[in-house]
């Protein structure tokens, strides 16, 4: 399994053709207390960079973009009942959705953990 990161502060774990997608710890910290999550329906096709989910903190709403193109296979409905999980376990149990990769080549432009850490340094 390989973990990738995006400049939109998402992470994805790729196993075979399936990617599990969530937001990074940095992202949840910037958002503050998460109070609402809207997830995509399984079966929906998402395009790289397109809106896939919504996460709202007390203060504001933010879109979660699809880091790669593909078809949603599952969403983490536990988040809808307990949005605060995003603050507690952003890079683990609080994954947002899984998708079947449409084009594995799209993974090439993404960052690994070290590159993402270096990217965070540049924006702090």
């Amino acid at each position: 399994m390989a973990r990738y990161f995006t400049k939109d502060h998402e992470w994805l774990d790729v196993t075979g053709d399936i990617a599990t997608v969530g937001i990074t710890d940095h992202a949840q910290e910037q958002l503050g207390d998460v109070v609402f999550v809207e997830l995509p329906e399984p079966g929906r096709e998402v395009a790289k960079g397109g809106e896939a989910a919504v996460v709202e903190s007390v203060k504001a709403a933010s879109d979660v973009y699809a880091p790669v193109s593909g078809k949603i296979t599952e969403s983490n409905s536990a988040l809808e009942d307990n949005p605060a999980m995003v603050n507690e376990d952003a890079e683990g149990g609080a994954w947002f959705f899984k998708l079947e990769l449409g084009d594995k080549g799209e993974l090439e432009g993404l960052m690994d953990a070290d590159a993402y850490a270096a990217f965070l340094e540049t924006i702090e």
């Binding site: 207390d33 903190s57 603050n87």
Partner: peptide, 8 residues
């Protein structure tokens, strides 16, 4: 806007 404890 908030401290480390968070808005809630």
């Amino acid at each position: 806007v908030q401290y480390p404890s968070g808005i809630i």
